[in-house]
Design a protein around this nucleic acid. Structure first.
Lengths: 343, 343
DNA sequence: TTGAAAGCGCTACCAT
DNA sequence: ATGGTAGCGCTTTCAA
């Protein structure tokens, strides 16, 4: 017993029972003092409160959750936690949720999707809601959540879609269309696109925007003007390497990473940006301001989308039956040096 | 009833009771089939399992947590979720923890620290453990956790320290000392340091490393050779602007952000890196490979630290009374173009 | 080899 | 204006 506190000593937590006993009231009343859900005489109230203070009482959230059948926790599901676009949005959402009494747990959705039962694990913990960010839930995932009556919203998307749930998105195809059209106006010859791989929905959306712009202005798109690579600097480099046999004058990229790789590769080959090749990116990552020339890009306003997701989810939790909302945000074009937008 | 399922329909979750009834066994046995904590006859076992499958039974984790008085959830506390150094470490830790059945919740510790009661909120949810990353817990925070018997570990530190708990760290002062000493060997005149503001512990540690190197080689440090600024590109720019009245030949920086700002500013002033000024950074962020010249910097191996934190925490959860561990990792010097390390 | 039953700490329905 | 008490869904003695 003289040994420094053994874990066996188990400082048993103070329970509501303890408080009630000490204050000479019933658990019921103590509970109502705490929650304020029922009138309690001023005097009793004070008494209970001071006992709570004295005993340093803290309600056991797990017990509350068991009764309430919900944990006041929101699961934020993203493809890759370490991805910048994910984290800025999470921060905003988490801050807002915390102010409303919700904890946020982050789930890094594995490459295999949810087949592994990961989502089931999430659901087993009875979250109050789920936010999917940057990816639409697969049908099976949506079904699972519906079945378990777990409200969810989806944000960070690149297009509206037909799912029967709340979404926040920017029209990424339109943004790419716009930037491509501007480029076409002052780029006379070869115009190319380097995008993310086909399995990513955002990548497909952006390619669609590019295709539309080309078709509207020049007719058919030549498939050798399109390169699909991983969303990495290395991907951008290798795509640009392929393109350099017949150097383009404008390269629209599906991500800043790719654009940066493309720029570096072109520069190594002795080409000047933007004089010889204009390049645009997508995301507005920090490095886009640092690279020289700085990168003209598109900002999908993910932080704002994160906040909006959180707000929408809270609404959905309160009114589970209201009609699904679709919120569109205008993507922001960031004009820098790698591509000029004025004629 | 033809209306699409109202939430009022409340598909009541399948409970262990339901399974037991259907399988004609007691709740006890059903429970033991699930947990495997007691022998159950092969036949009964099969019967119960198939009923579970049939009813799609899923154990209610909240109820389990209430009994177990712990949630198999780990809280990961960082200064700023959106910070790269935080997220790479979180990803590794979260992945490892998930494999061991733990969920991870992220807590963005506010500027005011935990005075706000945030940590208490975390504790109220009965986490199985807490990881502090990039900051030592304040004494009050440590006390609170100890009192609630919540195990915790601390990682991402810049130095060992005296706290009576598990830590993972790199010797950041030594790393800066080393890089400064190398620079001093081939930099004949003005050697400066641009670091983060004084309120950050890492910033103080790094400045100390610089000071020690200078004192070991040239005696006293001239205070006008040290600039303290926020950890941002802008901070680096303005610090370099101050220094340019008498251009340094070597600038050691407390972060890559700062170093990048410093490089950009110097280049705008017509100075060449590294010919006129050598510059080093700290962190090894992605942009350090992208900037030209690429940035020589120090990698504190945060992802590994994150994993180690997770491992240590799991050990601590199992053996709460074992002696505190101190794990030191060697920081990695990344030699790139902005400063050469060979003579 | 299996069950009955007592809780974990809280909330809310009935009472009075 | 306040209490008694029955659970929420699970685990775990104790008993058979």
């Amino acid at each position: 017993m003289t040994k420094s506190s053994r874990s066996g000593l188990q400082q048993k937590r103070v329970t509501l029972r303890d408080v009630a006993d000490r204050a000479g009231v019933s658990e019921t009343t103590a509970s109502h003092v705490m929650t304020g859900r029922r009138y309690v005489a001023e005097a009793t109230q004070q008494r209970v409160l001071s006992v709570m203070e004295e005993l340093k009482y803290r309600p056991n959230q797990v017990a509350r959750s068991l009764r309430a059948r919900s944990t006041s926790t929101v699961a934020f599901i993203v493809k890759d936690i370490a991805n910048v676009s994910a984290t800025t949005s999470i921060r905003e959402a988490a801050a807002l949720l915390r102010r409303r009494g919700f904890a946020t747990t982050m789930v890094d959705s594995p490459d295999e999707g949810f087949s592994s039962g990961l989502l089931q694990q999430v659901v087993d913990r009875l979250p109050s809601g789920v936010i999917f960010f940057g990816q639409d839930p697969e049908p099976a995932a949506a079904r699972l959540l519906r079945q378990a009556s777990v409200p969810f919203v989806v944000g960070g998307l690149g297009a509206a879609h037909t799912g029967d749930w709340d979404i926040v998105y920017t029209d990424q195809a339109a943004a790419i269309r716009r930037i491509t059209a501007v480029g076409l106006a002052h780029s006379q010859s070869r115009v190319c696109f380097i995008g993310g791989n086909w399995d990513d929905e955002g990548a497909r959306t952006r390619l669609k925007g590019f295709t539309q712009a080309i078709e509207a202005s020049r007719g058919a798109l030549n498939s050798r003007d399109v390169q699909l690579v991983p969303y990495t600097v290395e991907g951008g480099r290798s795509a640009m390497a392929n393109l350099l046999s017949d150097p383009p004058t404008l390269v629209v990229c599906g991500s800043d990473q790719i654009a940066i790789g493309a720029i570096l590769k072109a520069q190594e080959a002795g080409l000047r940006i933007p004089q010889d090749i204009e390049v645009s990116g997508f995301d507005n990552v920090e490095a886009s301001e640092i690279i020289r020339p700085s990168l003209t890009t598109i900002d999908a306003r993910l932080a704002e989308q994160g906040m909006i997701c959180a707000e929408m989810l809270l609404q959905r939790i309160e009114l589970p039956e209201s009609a699904a909302q679709r919120r569109e945000l205008e993507p922001r074009v960031m004009e820098r040096q790698s591509m000029r937008l004025s004629p």
